[in-house]
């Protein structure tokens, strides 16, 4: 590991100022589960490391009427797993968190870190995009802005964060009635894995007719960023979805993705797994939509 200077700011403003001052030379430390292996392997060689874990306002889970679920960026995956609010209203987040890495890593890794690290295979991204989440960012001086998560990712390791900006919150709208969500992760092993393909699906069905009124299908690990597949979504919206529609949507997704070949899987296998897991994920989301409560916020 190369040497670096270490900062542990106590306030957000201080952190933003440091980040701005050392733009391009600094890395933010949150959970550290991606950063520290990168430092160890010398794949990341920052001159400055800014630990934001001392900032008190970033670690909370709240359910707000207007924004839905609000997660501070320092919330860890194990905090998501053990949160009663999440278990009651957003069980899918628990389900996804349980598929990430290991118990020890989940004790450290944060939701904000997982998003800002912007790995194409990040497990939290596809599901949060499918849920139509937004992220709140803050810049030096305290000005905040929000951005749909879909627009946050630019490329592998690249995000829409401006110099000095820090991701402070993730907002996740409450699921509407007759809406189902699913996240499936294709891996070699049964644990301690990075997704070969990750597929998140959200499906909403109309009352009585059971026609599909909304679909969001998001694929991880198959492009430079998590990828939403409008071509597949279009096939399903407005229809009472049958198995042929699902097959067609899955096929469209498989054609839309641009995976690479690496030691984890070949490009062809990833494309095929997008088809298979999209099909399964859509089926699961539809089935969950059918069994989800009729009433609630429209």
């Amino acid at each position: 590991m190369k040497d670096f200077e270490y900062h542990s700011p106590a306030t957000l403003e201080e952190a933003c100022q440091l980040l701005k001052k050392y733009d391009g030379q600094a890395k933010v430390l949150a959970g550290g589960t991606d950063l520290i292996p990168g430092l160890y392997r010398r794949e990341i060689v920052p001159e400055q490391v800014i630990n934001i874990k001392g900032i008190p306002s970033l670690n909370f889970i709240a359910n707000e009427e207007s924004k839905g679920l609000v997660l501070g960026s320092l919330v860890t995956f194990n905090e998501i797993i053990s949160s009663p609010i999440i278990e009651e209203h957003y069980p899918i987040l628990k389900e996804v968190a349980e598929k990430i890495a290991s118990h020890q890593v989940r004790n450290l890794a944060t939701i904000g870190g997982n998003l800002c690290n912007a790995a194409p295979s990040a497990d939290s991204a596809p599901i949060l995009i499918a849920l139509d989440s937004t992220v709140a960012l803050i810049e030096p001086g305290g000005k905040e802005r929000t951005l749909p998560l879909e627009k946050f990712f630019i490329g592998p390791g690249e995000t829409a964060l401006a110099p000095g900006e820090i991701l402070i919150q993730v907002h996740i709208p409450l699921l509407k009635p007759r809406t189902g969500v699913s996240y499936l992760k294709q891996t070699s092993r049964q644990a301690l894995e990075i997704a070969v393909v990750g597929v998140a699906a959200l499906v909403r069905l109309e009352k009585k007719t059971e026609k599909c009124s909304l679909v969001r299908l998001v694929i991880g690990a198959c492009a430079s960023t998590p990828l939403r597949i409008p071509a597949a979504e279009k096939i399903l919206v407005g229809k009472k979805i049958g198995s042929q529609d699902i097959e067609a949507a899955a096929k469209a997704a498989s054609e839309a993705v641009k995976p690479i070949t690496d030691v984890r899987a070949s490009k062809l296998y990833r494309k095929e797994m997008v088809r298979v897991q999209c099909k399964r994920s859509l089926e699961e989301a539809i089935s969950r939509a059918k069994s989800s409560p009729e009433t609630g916020m429209e």
């Binding site: 070699s188 092993r189 049964q190 644990a191 301690l192 990075i194 030691v263 984890r264």
Partner: peptide, 27 residues
């Protein structure tokens, strides 16, 4: 089912426990 050192041009491409898949308890 799982294990293989991926060796290309004499180089091991998966020299880590993440990418060399020895079984976990769940396997």
């Amino acid at each position: 089912l799982l294990e293989k050192l991926v060796v290309e041009k004499g180089e091991v491409l998966n020299p880590s426990f993440l990418d060399y898949k020895m079984p976990t308890v769940k396997d």
